[in-house]
C-alpha cells in the first residue's frame, strides 16, 4: 500500500535545466536574427530610396529612357484601364439606381457616381491594376537583369544602374499613373451614362453637367495629388524588388510577386493617409 505524504513539486534534474537553457538561448538567438534581418531590410530600402532621390537630381538624366518607360507604362495598361474604367461606372450606376429610385433621388445619380469615381474608385482601382501590371513587370524585368548579370555589366561600364534603370521607371510611373487615373475617371463617368441609359433615355449633356456640378475643386485636387504618390510607390517598389532579387531564376518570380503584394498594400495605406489628410483640410 502506498503511503500518502506531503505533495512535493518535481524539481527538474540538472540535464533538463541545461536543455531548457540551451533551448531558451536558441530562441533568443532566432528572435535576434529575425530582428536583425528586419532592421537590415529597413536600412537597405532607405539606402535604395536615398540613392534613387540622389540619382534623380543628377545632371545626366536619361530622358530617352524616361520617354520609353512612359510609353511602356501607358501602353501596357491602357486596354486594361479602359475596360475597368467603363465597368466601374456601369456597375456603380446599375447598383445605385434602384436605391436612389426608392428615395425618389434618381436625379442625384450622376453627381453621386462622379464623386465616388473621382474621389476613390478611379484612383484606387487604377493604382491597384497598375501595381499588378507595371509593378510586377518592373520587378520581373529588373530581377532577370540582375540574374543575367546585366545590372553588373552596366555598373562595370561606368553607368550608374540606379540612374539608368530606376529613376526613369519611378518617374514614368509617377507621371503616367495620374494621367491613367484621369482617363479612367472620364471613362467611368461615360460608363455611368451608358448604365443610366439602360433604363430609359438620358441626355448626355445633362448627365455630364449634373455630374460635374457635384464635383468641386477639393474633390478633384486631393484625389489627383495622391495618385502621384501611388505612382511613385508602385515604381519604387517594383524597381527595389527587382534590384534586390537573388541570383537564381526563381528569385525573378519572387521579385515580381512581392512587387505586386507590397505595392498594392502601399497603395491602400497611402490612400488611408490621403483620406485622413483630406478630411482634416475640409
Amino acid at each position: 500500500m502506498k503511503s500518502i505524504g506531503p505533495v512535493r513539486k518535481k524539481i527538474p534534474k540538472l540535464p533538463d535545466v541545461k536543455k531548457r537553457a540551451i533551448k531558451l538561448s536558441e530562441n533568443v538567438i532566432k528572435k535576434t536574427q529575425k530582428a536583425n534581418r528586419f532592421f537590415l531590410a529597413v536600412g537597405e530600402i532607405n539606402l535604395f530610396f536615398w540613392y534613387t532621390v540622389k540619382a534623380s537630381f543628377s545632371r545626366d538624366f536619361e530622358f530617352k529612357e524616361f520617354l520609353r518607360q512612359c510609353y511602356l507604362v501607358g501602353n501596357k495598361t491602357l486596354p486594361l484601364i479602359t475596360i475597368t474604367g467603363v465597368v466601374i461606372g456601369l456597375v456603380l450606376t446599375i447598383q445605385a439606381r434602384p436605391v436612389l429610385a426608392e428615395f425618389g433621388a434618381v436625379s442625384l445619380l450622376p453627381g453621386m457616381v462622379a464623386l465616388s469615381i473621382i474621389r476613390e474608385m478611379g484612383p484606387v482601382v487604377t493604382a491597384l491594376i497598375c501595381a499588378g501590371k507595371i509593378g510586377s513587370g518592373m520587378g520581373a524585368e529588373l530581377g532577370s537583369m540582375k540574374v543575367t548579370e546585366q545590372i553588373d555589366a552596366m555598373e562595370v561600364s561606368s553607368t550608374n544602374p540606379i540612374r539608368f534603370l530606376v529613376v526613369p521607371r519611378v518617374m514614368a510611373a509617377t507621371l503616367m499613373i495620374p494621367i491613367l487615373v484621369l482617363y479612367a475617371d472620364a471613362l467611368g463617368i461615360l460608363g455611368s451614362w451608358a448604365g443610366a441609359n439602360i433604363k430609359g433615355e438620358v441626355n448626355f449633356v445633362l448627365f455630364i453637367s449634373q455630374a460635374f456640378s457635384a464635383v468641386g475643386f477639393m474633390d478633384l485636387f486631393p484625389a489627383v495629388i495622391k495618385t502621384f504618390f501611388f505612382g511613385a510607390a508602385i515604381g519604387f517598389i517594383g524597381c527595389y524588388k527587382g534590384f534586390t532579387a537573388g541570383r537564381g531564376t526563381e528569385s525573378v518570380g519572387k521579385a515580381a510577386n512581392e512587387s505586386v503584394v507590397v505595392a498594392s498594400l502601399l497603395v491602400i495605406l497611402i490612400d488611408l493617409v490621403a483620406v485622413q489628410i483630406t478630411d482634416m483640410l475640409l
Partner: peptide
C-alpha cells in the same frame, strides 16, 4: 567610375542587354 572605364569585363553569361 573613371577607373572602370579602363577595365573591360566579359561576363560568363555575356550579359548583353536584352
Amino acid at each position: 567610375a573613371k577607373l572602370r572605364m579602363k577595365i573591360g569585363f566579359l561576363f560568363q553569361s555575356g550579359a548583353l542587354y536584352d
